[in-house]
Amino acid sequence: MQYSILIYGAEGIFEHLGEDEQSEIMQAHRDLQKALEEKGPFGTAQLMPTSNAVTIKPLTDKNKKPVIVDGPFAETKERFLGFYVTDFLNLDEAIEFAERLSSPYISLEIRPVTWAGGTLSPDA
């Protein structure tokens, strides 16, 4: 089954870590990417801070243009920072891989994927 590893944390923390700690975190990501690559295709992205986002509001009237507002969908204390998606044997394996990113600054949500298309399609 495919699982996503969703990374949440406060924004603006990473930039203020010392260089050593920053490179330690980046190394954990590179190591994880390498390990995932050996398993098969995977998708990943690091997202810009939510201030860069715009949100298209639900369209209730098809004759109008949707309302676009600045900012993220929801004001949350922890922000969605980035994700990985790939095929894991089971939840335990997904957790085992995700744990490699653990640090005091982030929470990791493991969420199974119902369907994935594009390059992430299991048949791709």
């Binding site: 203020h16 010392g18 005091p104 600054y105």
Partner: peptide, 10 residues
């Protein structure tokens, strides 16, 4: 620990 320092300053 640094991680506390970072939290406080944030």
């Amino acid at each position: 620990p640094d991680w506390l320092e970072i939290q406080f300053s944030n």
